[in-house]
Amino acid sequence: MTSYLVTGVAGFIGSSLARHLLERDHTVYGLDNLETGLESNLEDLTGNSNFEFINGDLRNEDDVRGAVADARYVLHQGAVPSVPRSVEDPVLSTEANCTGTANLISAAHEADVEKIVVASSSSVYGPTEVSPKREDLPANPVSPYALTKYFTERLAVQASEFYDLDSVALRYFNVFGPHQNPEGDYAAVIPKFINLMLEGEQPVIYGDGTQSRDFTYIDNVIQANLNAIESDATGVALNAGCGDSFTINTLVDELNGILGTEIEPIYDDPRPGDVPHSKADISKARDLIDYEPAVSFREGLERTVEHFADDQTILEHADD
Score class of each variant (00 low, 15 high):
T2Q: 15
V6F: 04
V6D: 03
T7K: 02
A10P: 02
F12W: 02
G14N: 09
S16L: 02
L17T: 01
A18N: 03
L21E: 04
L21N: 03
L22I: 05
D25A: 09
H26G: 08
H26D: 12
Y29H: 11
Y29F: 15
L34H: 09
L34G: 14
E35S: 13
L38H: 12
E39K: 15
S40A: 14
N41L: 12
L42N: 11
L42I: 02
D44I: 02
T46A: 04
G47T: 10
E52R: 15
E52D: 06
N55Q: 14
G56S: 08
G56K: 09
E61P: 08
E61W: 07
R65G: 03
G66P: 10
A67M: 06
A69R: 15
A69Y: 03
D70S: 12
A71N: 01
H76I: 03
V83E: 13
V83P: 10
R85W: 15
P90T: 05
T99G: 04
T99A: 06
G100V: 02
N103R: 05
N103A: 08
L104G: 03
H109Q: 13
D112T: 06
K115C: 03
I116F: 00
V117W: 01
V117D: 05
V118S: 01
P127T: 05
E129Q: 11
V130S: 06
P132F: 00
K133D: 03
R134L: 03
E135T: 14
P138E: 05
N140L: 05
V142E: 15
S143D: 04
P144R: 04
Y145A: 02
K149G: 07
F151G: 09
R154Y: 12
L155A: 13
A156G: 12
E161V: 13
F162T: 12
D164Y: 05
D164V: 03
S167R: 06
V168A: 06
L170C: 11
R171E: 08
H179E: 11
Q180C: 13
Y186L: 04
V189E: 13
V189I: 15
P191K: 00
I194T: 01
Q202N: 15
V204P: 07
G207P: 05
Q211L: 04
D214I: 05
I218R: 11
N220S: 11
V221H: 02
A224G: 12
N225T: 07
L226D: 13
L226N: 08
L226P: 10
I229E: 12
A233E: 08
A237F: 07
N239V: 01
G241K: 11
G243K: 04
D244Y: 04
T250D: 14
L255A: 01
N256Q: 06
N256P: 14
I258N: 01
L259H: 06
G260W: 01
I263L: 10
P265M: 06
P265V: 02
P265S: 04
D268Y: 00
D269A: 11
D269K: 14
P270Q: 05
P272I: 00
G273I: 02
P276E: 10
S278H: 09
S278M: 13
K279F: 00
K279I: 14
K279Y: 02
K284V: 11
D290Q: 10
Y291E: 10
E292R: 12
A294P: 13
A294L: 13
V295D: 11
S296K: 09
G300N: 14
G300M: 07
L301V: 08
L301F: 07
E302D: 13
R303T: 06
T304G: 11
D310F: 02
T313E: 14
I314T: 14
I314Q: 13
D319E: 13
